[in-house]
Design a protein around this nucleic acid. Structure first.
Lengths: 142, 142
DNA sequence: CTCCTTATTGAAAACGGTTTTCATTTAACC
DNA sequence: GGTTAAATGAAAACCGTTTTCAATAAGGAG
């Protein structure tokens, strides 16, 4: 269970495990799409109604510090959070249902180096995201 | 002169040419890096002190509508604006001085299609940005 | 199990960037 | 020059995020 791993990791860092934190972690860990703080708040409140929005912000901050979640940029906003993949991966996001999937992009490093060289840059980071329609949503559109 | 082209384009769309608008357009058109609304405000004020921040927002909005500028996402924020390139191009940004350069990425389409197929997605948009250090800043770092 | 310390919490206030409102100004056409 | 509606800047409203603070509760010590 991903949320248990996350909780264990939080504990290992010396953070306390509270009901509020558990609710937030559970929500984010099991979501197939990136969630905004408000999304997390609304979803988590169902399991822990006393939850405050502030706690959502603070917990997301910690999860990001520990590289358990990452911030995702989309057309609709740049403040959504998603479980991070292990290793260096990139995102493929469905523009209909917002489902997010990771893929490997190892092959691209060389190309990026070339681009850099051509412009007299030393490239040391890249940021790649694909957008499309997933099979499930495609079916509905047709 | 890029700013003249932009002003002409605004006029063509029926917008009026004001001093405030000229100042904003000039600032953004000639900037080598993406600028936040506040950046634009401060820089433009030097040429037109009566300028209001609201006008900056409104003008940037129009320039974006006309695809003369695009919004750029960076570590520091997602609300900076840069002249748009003609055709489909990607950005290479210096993390030191923020200078932005466009490059062609035509070769990548096939790869992206493959990634999509492997995950049962129809990919119809991609978002790619490289970050590095430009020659000028490299010299200073060394 | 109970006590104690201190991290964590939620409510409310503060904050900062963006948008709306509105009376005034001014560009563009006659 | 006169007219009209678009555009302007100041102020207020707005909204997502952060800070403040007193109350709560997690988790280690006894």
């Amino acid at each position: 269970m991903k949320s248990d791993t996350w909780l264990k990791e939080l504990r290992k860092q010396g953070y306390r495990l509270t009901e509020a934190r558990r609710a937030v972690v559970e929500t984010v860990a099991q979501s197939p799409r990136a969630l905004s703080p408000t999304d997390v708040y609304n979803l988590s409140k169902e399991h822990y109604p006393a939850l405050g929005l502030v706690t959502v912000y603070r917990t997301l901050e910690k999860l990001e510090e520990l590289h358990l979640v990452q911030r995702v940029h989309q057309e609709e906003g740049c403040n959504a959070y998603l479980s991070e993949a292990e290793g260096h991966q990139h995102l493929l996001i469905c523009t209909e249902c917002k489902k997010a999937v990771y893929f490997e992009g190892d092959d691209l490093g060389d190309f990026f180096g070339e681009v850099g060289k051509a412009h007299n840059f030393v490239v040391n980071e890249h940021w790649l995201q694909l957008f499309g329609i997933c099979k499930d949503c495609k079916r509905i559109c047709d």
